[in-house]
Design a protein around this nucleic acid. Structure first.
Length: 573
DNA sequence: GCCGTTTTCGGCCCGACTGTTTTCAGTCG
């Protein structure tokens, strides 16, 4: 059993405990442990293999009791304690929890009163008007449940890229390491780094496709084989995602990779260009009549079609082909171009590691500077800092800066934009900070006009440098708040406020199309991990991918600049 | 259930919002 599965079970135990009215701190303990396991950089099996129970207990938030449960899971693949909970209340807690507004207590009430066990039951009950009759529920709750289900359905069947990427890369690596495999690469929307993906498409070059097929359908994660052919197979993995593998000859590699990377619309445009040139483009290559004229590499395919090479992230048929023809493609920001990270949280609020630990981890990922931007007081749940604590943290940062070399820590904060657009921290305190990020964390439901006004008013504060996660969406969970993004982008440009691409996998906010708007409007961007622990810096990759999908160049992104230049730019000329 | 140079016991993140209620439970962050 791998880390995500262990974490999942711990999360579910927490839900069950909360349902049963267990002490809130006990529930938190399980959630915390789950988070910790989820964020581990190392396979929990390896940790256990090397150091046994003792090593498990060294995982933050894991003590004797939870370590024993993890041990049982690793050894037997099951947990009696968890099985008993499931038997006692046989409800799909995980599924129901995914609907916004539904928590453990609601799940329990619905089960007790209406025997609702899963989302289908819930939808039926809501549609037939049964829920509004329950005590503690009303018409509004019923409507909200239906809305929640609708939203969930629209986003289901797809997986958040950040959740699937490690698995995709792992399978890619596994296939590539086989002696009879020349190349293995994940194509599809995965390679285009779309924020959500429907399935994993893998392209393999091998002279022995049969062997590849045999190996593939027998991988340990496979729970169902839809089809197994000579050169193509499709399976379902235990986590629910479908994976396709296709084997081609080496000379078709470029054409096949291009074909399987998509997008479909992009490919159609390419094929049309081929036809205009009297050629035929398929996954096997470019052909003139029956004769193979190219397709070994993608570069070759584009070249023969009279195009510059187009990076996968922008193959969406939204102007990239025209730009390529004209030689006007953007020079996309690179995956190793970032010099700093301007949004990170520490154990001062809802992060789990210290300032020093975060700084060291950032340094290890190759960054030169980070801003510590803990939450401020209006976000009480995180223990948000007030003015005096911000000052105190500043002194701590000074100390750590003195101690560390090769990484500079900036003083910052993630301040709350209140309902009327003012901030929850005084201007005087803000003026002491290097980086002030402002963010909306409440009143998501204002009218479009009010929300837009509120945000613009906040970023008009002279101390605000960055608008953090500008639209507030959570992928597959929460819609962005209603606001006029173009107006906000224009205001950002006017006030010299930087717009963030929050790289947290479930946020990716700004999203690609907004990035494109921002870039074309001339607003500046930054790409931040929003790290809540030291393993989260890897999220930056997803933020960069999103930036690339939005046609952002290095010059558009302020934290691709070295520290001095970045500060100069952010504080205005 | 976890954790500790202020603690091996007694703390542990709690305020805003929503929708249901007339004083609060549940959810979210």
């Amino acid at each position: 059993m791998k880390n995500p599965e262990v974490a999942r079970i711990l999360y579910n135990i927490a839900i069950y405990m909360e349902m049963q009215g267990e002490m809130v701190f006990k529930v938190r303990a399980y959630e915390k442990a789950a988070q910790s396991v989820e964020a581990l950089g190392e396979d929990v099996n390896e940790i256990y293999g090397k150091g046994g129970m003792k090593a498990l207990e060294e995982i933050p938030g894991v003590g004797k009791s939870i370590a024993e449960k993890i041990e049982e899971l690793l050894k037997t693949g099951k947990l009696k304690y968890y099985e008993a909970l499931k038997k006692k209340i046989p409800v799909d807690v995980e599924g129901l929890r995914r609907i916004e507004g539904i928590g453990p207590k609601t799940i329990l009430a619905l089960y007790k009163k209406l025997k609702i066990k899963n989302i289908e039951d819930l939808e039926k009950a809501a549609k037939s008007g049964k829920i509004r009759t329950l005590e503690g529920f009303g018409q509004k709750s019923e409507e909200n449940i239906l809305k929640g289900i609708e939203f969930m359905k629209r986003s289901s069947g797809r997986y958040v890229l950040g959740h699937i990427l490690p698995l995709g890369k792992e399978i890619e690596k596994r296939l590539a390491s086989l002696e009879y495999v020349k190349t293995a690469i994940v194509a599809g929307s995965f390679r285009r780094r779309k924020e959500t993906i429907g399935d994993i498409d893998i392209l393999v070059v091998s002279g022995e496709p049969k062997k590849v097929m045999d190996y593939f359908v027998k991988m340990p994660e496979v729970i169902n084989v839809y089809g197994k052919g000579e050169t193509k197979s499709t399976v379902k993995l235990e986590n629910g995602i479908d994976v396709d593998v296709r084997v081609v000859e080496e000379k078709s590699y470029g054409a096949a990779l291009n074909y399987f990377t998509g997008s479909k619309d992009h490919n159609i445009s390419l094929r049309r260009i081929a036809v205009e040139k009297g050629l035929k483009l398929s996954e096997y290559g470019l052909f003139k009549k029956q004769k193979f004229v190219g397709g070994r590499t993608e570069e070759e395919v584009y070249k023969i079609l009279g195009l510059r090479y187009i990076e996968p992230e922008i193959r969406e048929n939204t102007g990239e082909i025209e730009a390529s023809k004209k030689g006007a493609l953007p020079k996309l920001i690179g995956y190793s171009d970032l010099k700093g990270d301007l949004q990170t949280q520490t154990s001062w609020t809802d992060g789990s590691d210290t300032i020093e630990e975060m700084a060291l981890a950032a340094k290890k990922t190759g960054l030169e500077y980070i801003a510590i931007t803990d939450h401020t007081k209006a976000l009480a749940m995180t223990g948000g800092l007030d003015e005096s604590k911000i000052a105190k943290q500043g002194k701590e940062i000074d100390k750590v800066n003195e101690k560390l070399e090769g990484i500079k820590i900036l003083k910052g904060a993630e301040v709350n934009i209140m309902k009327d657009g003012h901030l929850d921290i005084s201007d005087k305190a803000l003026s002491q900070l290097d980086i002030v990020g402002a963010a909306v964390h409440s009143n998501f439901n204002l009218s479009r006009e009010d929300q837009t006004k509120r945000i613009i008013s906040a970023i008009s504060n002279e101390h605000v440098d960055i608008l953090f996660h500008p639209t507030g969406r959570i992928i597959q969970k929460r819609e962005p708040y209603d606001a006029d993004i173009q107006k906000i982008i224009d205001a950002a440009k006017d006030t010299g406020t930087v717009l963030e691409i929050d790289a947290y996998p479930d946020r990716l906010d700004l999203k690609d199309e907004h990035v494109k708007l921002a870039v074309s409007s001339g607003a500046k961007l930054c790409i931040d991990s929003d790290a809540h622990n030291k393993n989260h810096f890897r999220f930056l990759e997803f933020g960069i991918a999103q930036a690339r999908r939005g046609w952002a160049e290095k010059k558009d992104v302020i934290n691709a600049l070295p520290l001095g230049k970045m500060l100069k730019m952010i504080k205005g000329e």
